[in-house]
Design a protein around this nucleic acid. Structure first.
Lengths: 248, 248
DNA sequence: GGGCATAGGACCACGATGCGGAACAGTACA
DNA sequence: TGTACTGTTCCGCATCGTGGTCCTATGCCC
């Protein structure tokens, strides 16, 4: 099938811009095309937002359109976008990182994470997937599983992520019962050394769990002695607000 | 100036792919063009790497070319690439984050940072610019300034980033003399609360400072009591090796 | 297994669009 | 002021992109 020359030329020009070419003549030299051809292409690419002029001058650089194309719209991004302002507010209130995860089979995938205002903080886990039992969000989601799903999960040996990770089925069942009563879950140094976290479920108006919101921080400062209950309350309240208040 | 229709169409197709369209017919519907036009465009975009087929089938997704265009080649990236394996080895050896910064006027710009193997670590500062006096890499670079440059910098009030930041010119001059003797610099909680760091210069074969390599970590565990000297030696040695050993 | 519906892809006549040379305006520098 | 260079615009021309058509492949249903 014959290709479209104009599109090939446009990408050659984008290559040159990306590689540091500056003005029309420079780019024309690099791609071996007449200046008028390059000027017309640049004008079109600029209209499209694929390139932009540096400080309104006559030097070109890659524009915002290409990064936008690289971030494909994903159904879960919509949910992330709704949750995001709540996570940001919670991060400011607690001074720690916050995040949101959804079920991925019998694991949990971190959809989005908001950085702590502190320089020392937990690293970014966005996009990563973990077994449900090792972190607070996963435990919250497990509390919603049917008896059959739970039995199946607990019927095989569980992975310990630290020496503190709870892996005994009996203990896990007791923990889940407690989570169902409390509406939140604290996990200390089970997911990773030096990290504590608390999570609560985000539910839709029908009461189904969409995912779990969590806050986590270095154990040496989070939680402060005696603060566990109000922190858990705050996370639980924030989770409840996700689909109750308009996001803007 | 008239635009190039084919390029506009190509981007409309990229938009549709990015938005989740799957096959030729789907995309043709979304962009309101004949299938043959869309098929030809997709074939060209596929040749260019801008789109690719999902699992070799007939569904399309955004290809690797666009992210490549978004990362412009920068002269400093070459230097980063050379430094990177050294930073990675140092991060493994120390168990803390490492990084490399270069002079940017009288400030320091962090070119690259390598994560610590620890879950609790210093956040990523890559790309950020700081006044020279507030961090170990900047102080190392200041030690290379001429008397005139130093006088000019110290003639205006300096910004304190924490209550520990050294901002008195006399103290700074003494510190710089010490750094010239030692070949490294330790900074504790001056750049940010809870962070300590040590840096040493990376020099070219002519002895000129290209930038400064550093390691930093949460003060509660870095450095361990009594380890400051061997850590500083390790950073200084690693910095010396950057342009001495082949990078691979 | 056969029929049907749909999608993908190749082909080709045609004219619209893109090409590129030339000229001009603007800017920087000696 | 003159020169050199860059960016922009115009326009005649023909090449390239268009889009309708048709064929093949695939999946689904009976």
């Amino acid at each position: 099938m014959p290709t479209v020359q104009s599109v090939e030329r446009a990408f050659a020009i984008l290559d040159a811009v990306s590689a540091g070419a500056s003005g029309v003549t420079d780019i024309a030299d690099r791609v071996d095309l007449p200046k008028s051809t390059v000027a017309r292409m640049l004008s079109t690419l600029e209209d499209l937002g694929a390139v932009e002029r540096v400080d309104g001058g006559s030097d070109y650089q890659i524009g915002p359109r290409l990064p936008q194309l690289c971030r494909p719209v994903d159904a879960t991004l919509h949910l992330s976008a709704i949750v995001q302002p709540h996570l940001e507010r919670l991060a400011m209130q607690l001074g720690e990182s916050t995040g949101f995860g959804i079920a991925s089979g019998s694991a949990v995938r971190v959809l989005t994470q908001v950085e702590s205002p502190n320089a020392v903080q937990v690293r970014d886990y966005t996009g990563e997937v973990f077994p449900a039992h090792v972190g607070a969000p996963g435990v919250c989601l497990m509390a919603e599983w049917s008896q059959r799903e739970l039995d199946q999960y607990l019927s095989r040996p569980l992975t310990a992520y630290t020496e503190h990770t709870m892996v005994q089925p009996g203990q896990i069942r007791e923990r889940l019962a407690q989570v169902r009563r409390d509406g939140f879950c604290w996990v200390h140094e089970e997911f990773a050394d030096g990290i504590s976290s608390v999570a609560a479920l985000v539910r839709d108006p029908q009461g189904r769990a969409l995912g779990a919101m969590h806050a986590h921080g270095p154990t040496y400062r989070f939680p402060v002695e005696g603060d566990k209950m109000w922190i858990a309350d705050l996370v639980r309240q924030t989770a409840r607000q996700v689909l109750a208040a308009p996001s803007s």
